[in-house]
Structures are given as structure tokens and as C-alpha cells.
Amino acid sequence: MPILFARGLKKYYGRESDPVRALDGVSLSVEEGEFVVIVGQSGSGKSTLLHILGGLDRPTGGTVTVDGRVLGKMTDEQLTVFRRRNIGFVFQSYNLVPILDVYENIVLPVELDGDPIDRPFVEGVIDALGLRGLKKRLPSMLSGGQQQRVAIARAMVTKPAILLADEPTGNLDSRTSQDVLGLLKMTSTRFHQTVVMITHNEQIAQLADRVIHIEDGRIVGGEA
């Protein structure tokens, strides 16, 4: 059974008679432990798709099932809790809390859920992402690439069912991007983390188990 399953996703904006079709019938499925990359131009609907897959936005039509649970059936309140426990997000902006150090930022979501911290796991993620020496630093003392690595660690420590990454290196130069994406791939393989990532970097898509191409709100290539 796929961990993530989407069927006939539609997202229309504007007038009902002549809507803007951001997504127009997208279906895909992702298996546990897969690293899937979605490639598309800006305006192709790929960000809308990722937001809907992560329960940040509701579709006009179609369903999303994560870990056997249908997102559309949940109330907003249920969805919030579900997201916190099951979906990790990495965005272009790092959104680290400036007054907390690197370690505190990483374990924040676990602490917010009132869970005990799985120390060996957290330390493993910190090591894998090369953050060992930076644990006590404040975000303002880090480079962009380092901040994004912290954001990736933060998204992974809750052991989410899926990790969704939206152009995670959009703000980084190309050398740092390659570094961060390579590391993301290595870390997710090591911890068997399912990842769905959006990027326009065709080369980095080679690291993916599968590449899905999207254009004008539809899947045009790859194995969905």
C-alpha cells in the first residue's frame, strides 16, 4: 500500500464559469521510503500540488490519502494535529526561530507535541547532516546552506510519514544547492525517510528514485 496516494486532484481559482486551473486532474502514488522528485516550470502547479499533498490547502476536487487516512475527511483541527505528526515540511525559507540555538530548533517540533526526545535518532540525524559542530549556534550565525540543513533535520526528527520539500535550495547558490540536496538524499536513504521534493534542478533529479514532470496542472511525464 502506498504511503501517499492522490487521485484526480483539481484546484480551480476564480470564476466558476471560466476558472484558472492550477491543477487539473493529477493522480500519483508514493511508496514508503521512496525519494520522488517533481519537476516543472514556475506556474506549472507543482507548488499547489505539494501544498495539497501536505494538507496545507484543500483541493477543489479529488482526494489525498496519507498513511491510509483521507485528508479531506478531517476537520481543520484534526488536520493540524495530523500534519504535525505525519508530514514534515522544508520550504525555500528556513523559518528557524532566531532566539533558539540549532539543537533547540531541531527538537522543537518534538517538544511541541509533548513527546520525549529520541536522542540516538536525533543525534544520528544531526551527524548525517553535518551539524554536529553547530549545535550551540544561533541561526543568525549560520550560512544559508547551514540553515537549510537545520530545517531538514527539524523536519525529520518527528519521523514523519512523508517529508515534503518545496524548492528547498531556491535561495542558495548552485554549489551549495548541490551540497544540500546531496545530503538530503543521503540522509533520507539512511533513515528510510519518504521524500517528495519539488525542484527545477534537472541534474539533481538523477538522485531520485522517480521523477514526475508537471505542466499546466497536469502530469506530462515520468511514472506517477
Binding site: M1, G33, D67, M74, L79
Partner: peptide, 30 residues
């Protein structure tokens, strides 16, 4: 759904149980 997505201890347990089940299933698929 009532058990799984509330901010209660019981809900957390339910969530963990679901995770265990998922891992087992994933292993079988693997």
C-alpha cells in the same frame, strides 16, 4: 479518526500504534 488526531495521550498512543503497523507493512512490501 476521533482517537488519532486529538491532542490527548490516548491519541498519541493510537498514532504510535498506527506507525508500528505501517512499518510492519512496509517491511513486507520491501
Amino acid at each position: 479518526p476521533l482517537a488519532a488526531d486529538r491532542d490527548t495521550r490516548l491519541s498519541k498512543l493510537a498514532h504510535k500504534a498506527a506507525k508500528v503497523a505501517r512499518l510492519r507493512e512496509a517491511a513486507a512490501c520491501q
